[in-house]
Design a protein around this nucleic acid. Structure first.
Length: 265
DNA sequence: GTTCTCGGCCG
DNA sequence: CGGCCGAGAAC
C-alpha cells in the first residue's frame, strides 16, 4: 500500500512536470521526506532556488511552496519586503538586464498556455477566441508600478523621461510618473497599436469604461515631427547601448563562473 | 561517470 | 524545526 517515491503528475503544473516525494528510510533523519521536481525533459530539481534559477526572472516564485507544490498567497508578505529592499539598499551587483515587468504572477509559477477548445460548438464561452487568448487583467494594475524608479549602477536616480504634450492620463492616478509607466508597459506587452483610451466615457468613469488593453492615457496623436525626434533618440541610445554592452562583455569575460551543477546537463 | 541518499549547516 | 545542498554510498 505504500506508493511513495513515485513521480506524480501535479495539478498546477504544466503537462510533463512531475513531483516526487521520497521518504528517508534510515539514519537519524528517518521519516523525513525530500521533495523533487522533474521538468518535462527529465531534469531533476531539489530546491526552490534551483528551480528559480532554471526558470529565470520571468517567473516569480515568491508565493510558491516547494514542498506542497501549490501557490500560497500567504507568502506574499516576504517577497514584497524583498523587492523593496532590493530597490532601496545599495545594489552591489551588476545592472539588472531583466526586461520583465515587476508584476507578480498570480496563477502558477509556470508559464501555462490557456487551453483553446474550438471544436465544442455547444459551449459558447470556449469558442470565444478573444476570451481564450487574452488573460484577464486587473483594473488599474498600473498602480502597482508606482514608486519604481530607474537608477544607474551607482544608485543615482535617473531623471524621468519628459512626456510629450498631448499625453494626458486617465484614471485615479494622474502623475506623469505613472503615466509613463503605463505607456511603456503597454508598449512592452502588446503587439497591437497603443492608442490610449479612445472613448471619452472613460474619462468620466474609468472604472466602468476603461479599455484594459490600453494604457491609462487619453487618446493622443503622434506627429511626423514626434517620429523624427524619436528616431534621433533611438540612434543615440543604440550607440550608448553598444558601448555599455562592450564594456560589460569585457567585464564578464574576466569573471569565473559558478553553479557547476546546473550546467551539468 | 551518474544517481541516490542522508547529514548537517544555517536561517 | 525545515529548506537547501555537500558529499559519501550505491550503481
Amino acid at each position: 500500500m505504500i506508493m511513495e517515491k513515485k513521480r506524480m503528475d501535479c495539478p498546477s503544473l504544466p503537462p510533463g512536470w512531475k513531483k516526487e516525494e521520497v521518504i528517508r528510510k534510515s539514519g537519524l533523519s528517518a521519516g523525513k521526506s525530500d521533495v523533487y521536481y522533474y521538468s518535462p525533459k527529465g531534469k531533476k530539481f531539489r530546491s526552490k532556488p534551483q528551480l528559480s534559477r532554471y526558470l529565470g526572472n520571468t517567473v516569480d516564485l515568491g508565493c510558491f511552496d516547494f514542498r506542497t507544490g501549490k501557490m500560497m498567497p500567504s507568502k506574499l508578505q516576504k517577497s514584497k519586503q524583498r523587492l523593496r529592499n532590493e530597490n532601496l539598499t545599495i545594489n552591489k551587483g551588476k545592472p539588472d538586464l531583466n526586461t520583465a515587468l515587476p508584476i507578480r504572477q498570480t496563477a502558477s509559477i509556470f508559464k501555462q498556455p490557456v487551453t483553446k477548445v474550438v471544436n465544442h460548438p455547444s459551449n459558447k464561452v470556449k469558442t470565444d477566441l478573444q476570451r481564450a487568448t487574452e488573460q484577464p487583467r486587473q483594473l488599474f494594475w498600473e498602480k502597482r508600478l508606482k514608486g519604481l524608479r530607474v537608477s544607474d549602477i551607482t544608485e543615482e536616480v535617473l531623471r524621468t523621461m519628459e512626456l510629450p504634450k498631448g499625453l494626458t492620463s486617465v484614471g485615479p492616478d494622474t502623475s506623469d510618473e505613472t503615466l509613463l509607466s503605463a505607456i511603456s508597459s503597454a508598449l512592452h506587452m502588446s503587439s497591437s497599436p497603443i492608442t490610449g483610451q479612445t472613448t471619452s466615457a472613460a474619462e468620466k468613469n474609468p472604472a466602468v469604461w476603461l479599455n484594459t488593453s490600453q494604457p491609462l492615457c487619453k487618446a493622443f496623436i503622434v506627429t511626423d515631427q514626434d517620429i523624427r525626434e524619436q528616431e534621433l533618440k533611438v540612434i543615440q541610445a543604440r550607440r550608448c547601448l553598444e558601448d555599455a554592452l562592450m564594456a560589460d562583455g569585457l567585464a564578464r569575460a574576466s569573471e569565473s563562473s559558478r553553479d557547476s551543477e546546473d550546467k551539468a546537463a
